[in-house]
């Protein structure tokens, strides 16, 4: 027979002896959480308040599971979260880690992350929204549902918008099946604020509001270094100097998107480097291929007072 058969009379844990004391430190390292947090510290630059918040949530869940072992029945905590912050501050990256942390703590059973936006939840015609939303919710059960740019769900200017229907289904599942999935809403701070004001049900069901601060120039420089490292590039001394000046200038300009701007700037520097090597008309060495020079960075429009993006933005922007 292709099935698991378990004896309903055997209830696991029922006969486990009540321990005298639980070493939370040992629990922390044996659950693999220490490793996840270390990795978080190593791989994510800055974001101190965010990391602090994740540690708090981790501690709460650890204490809860310890309480359970003493037979103190704890109500499973609400873990729905909202991540607010400017573009490029690492919301999606942290959400992915969050899924892993919750999985290690045994709070979600599978630990997968389903990333959706308004398009995946809201249908195009009457009666289309509910099945679509339910389909996504089913897929996310046992894991984490990450709704990017969640404020788009609510469109006050169109009263017949189907977004409201998706919101109602979401709220119902968030309330009734807290054990089955964790919902993370993400978006820019000001718009999320408006979204929560218009949907008080959401505000009360989302327990953790985590704000992602902008990066400082030093952190952005470090992020650039990590990105280059993963792409097998490096900067020579001149390029590093130029890149620091680039960051200082770019931060003051409009449409600055933190980590994402840095990634784009580096992509463009690689483009210029490739072009430079191609036009040099001499054989290239491995060293040439991995080195970005000052010239590659300094060619950016940022240094001539423009905005380094394509297509070029109108100066009045």
């Amino acid at each position: 027979m292709d099935a698991v058969i378990d004896d309903p009379n055997i209830v696991p844990d029922a006969k486990a002896p009540v321990p005298g004391a639980i070493d939370l430190r040992a629990e922390f390292s044996s659950s693999g959480l220490a490793e996840v947090f270390d990795q978080l510290d190593r791989e994510l630059v800055g974001l101190v308040p965010v990391k602090q918040r994740l540690r708090e949530i981790g501690a709460l869940l650890l204490v809860d599971s310890a309480r359970k072992r003493f037979g103190l029945e704890a109500v499973s905590p609400t873990l729905h979260m909202s991540f607010t912050g400017n573009p490029g501050t690492g919301k999606t990256t942290v959400a992915l880690r969050m899924a892993e942390i919750l999985h290690r703590l045994g709070y979600v059973r599978k630990g997968h992350l389903v990333t959706v936006t308004r398009d995946d939840l809201v249908g195009q015609y009457i009666g289309h929204t509910a099945p679509k939303t339910k389909e996504i919710l089913k897929k996310a059960m046992g894991g984490v549902l990450f709704i990017d740019e969640a404020y788009y769900l609510y469109r006050p200017e169109n009263e017949r918008d189907y977004g409201q229907e998706a919101i109602e289904i979401l709220l119902q599942v968030m309330e009734n099946q807290r054990d089955d999935l964790v919902v993370i809403l993400a978006g820019y701070a000001d718009r999320m604020e408006r979204f929560f004001t218009a949907n008080p049900g959401f505000r009360s069901r989302v327990a953790h509001h985590v704000d992602f601060p902008d990066y400082s120039a030093g952190e952005l420089d470090a992020i650039g270094g990590r990105i280059l490292e993963t792409m097998n590039y490096r900067m020579d001394a001149g390029a590093q100097e130029a890149f620091r000046r680039y960051i200082d200038l770019r931060m003051l300009q409009p449409h600055f998107a933190n980590g994402r701007s840095i990634r784009n700037a580096l992509d463009r520097a690689r483009l210029r480097q490739a072009n430079r090597l191609f036009n040099a008309e001499r054989p290239v060495t491995a060293d040439d291929l991995v080195t970005l020079t000052a010239e590659d960075v300094l060619a950016s429009r940022v240094f001539s007072g423009g905005i380094d993006s394509y297509p070029p933005l109108h100066p009045s922007n």
């Binding site: 059973r109 919710l137 897929k139 046992g142 894991g143 099946q177 054990d179």
Partner: peptide, 17 residues
């Protein structure tokens, strides 16, 4: 009832249906 659930990872999704 509905469609076959090919992409559901956890039993909770099936129990919901």
């Amino acid at each position: 009832w509905g469609q076959p659930m090919f992409d559901v990872r956890d039993a909770a999704g099936v129990m919901f249906e």
